[in-house]
Simulated assay, not measured.
Amino acid sequence: MGNLAGVIAVRPEEAEIVAELKAGSEEAFAWLISTYHQPIYSVIARILQNPADAPDVTQDVFIKVFRNIHSFHGHSSLRTWLYRIALHEASNRRRWWSRHCRQEVTIEAETGPSSEGQALCIKDTLVDEHSSPFDMAANEEIRAHVEAALREVPEPFRTVLVLRDIEGFAYEEIAEVLNVHLGTVKSRLMRGRAQLKARLAPFAEAAGRIPGGAARFSAVACPKEAS
């Protein structure tokens, strides 16, 4: 294929890329990683219970792609195939997390008596005694709240919400990635949006009480309207 780095900008035809990948081209894999690493990482980070696991899971995805590229026969797009692997790996990590989370210490755990003689929890040591976060609200803080609320949306609604409203997948693509009916995708999306909106409602109300807060929140946090 020649110097692949020189033709990345013009997006070579997928069939040519797949052929080079199957031939073991290092340039083709470099192109694949540079093109898909960030979006794959973003999806995984939003789906996992612990976003800190996203780098390792993302690495596992590309290792799987490297080892299994010969099993790709073009029945779906390369992008769809990649996301299917990513969701499978994220699902495996979620199951692992469910089995081990009981070993984690929650912020509700008691650490000992306070100076007033009452039980002191870990969360009590994390209280910010400074000005309210809403007094210093910025777009990145709003995104953090949205990400936290998104992780509280149960599966399978969260995955559809991430693929549609954040990654911009078409309904048909989502149905293909998840191997479900189109109607199922739309139903899950509607329920996912409703649950996310409900979880963000208290924060949205608080943001509305500061100058410019409501507009900032709407611009950053509100998902796309269903079409």
Rank of each mutant, 00 (worst) to 15 (best):
L200T: 07
C222T: 09
L200C: 12
L200V: 09
A204C: 12
A201N: 08
G213R: 02
P202C: 07
A194G: 04
K197C: 08
A215V: 14
P223K: 04
A221I: 07
F203S: 12
A198Y: 00
A221W: 03
A214G: 06
E205Q: 13
P223V: 02
G212I: 10
F203C: 07
R216M: 15
E205S: 13
Q195N: 10
A219S: 13
I210R: 09
Q195G: 13
A198P: 00
A214Y: 00
A219W: 06
A215H: 07
A198R: 12
A214V: 02
A201Q: 12
G208K: 01
A194W: 00
M190T: 05
F217K: 01
P202A: 01
S218N: 10
A204M: 14
E205D: 12
E205Y: 03
A219I: 14
P223Y: 00
G208N: 04
K224A: 15
A215N: 09
P202R: 05
R191T: 10
Q195H: 11
E205P: 08
R193Q: 13
E205C: 09
F203V: 15
I210G: 02
A204V: 13
R209H: 06
A201W: 09
A198V: 14
A194R: 15
A219F: 02
L200D: 06
L200F: 09
A204R: 10
K197H: 11
Q195M: 15
A215I: 10
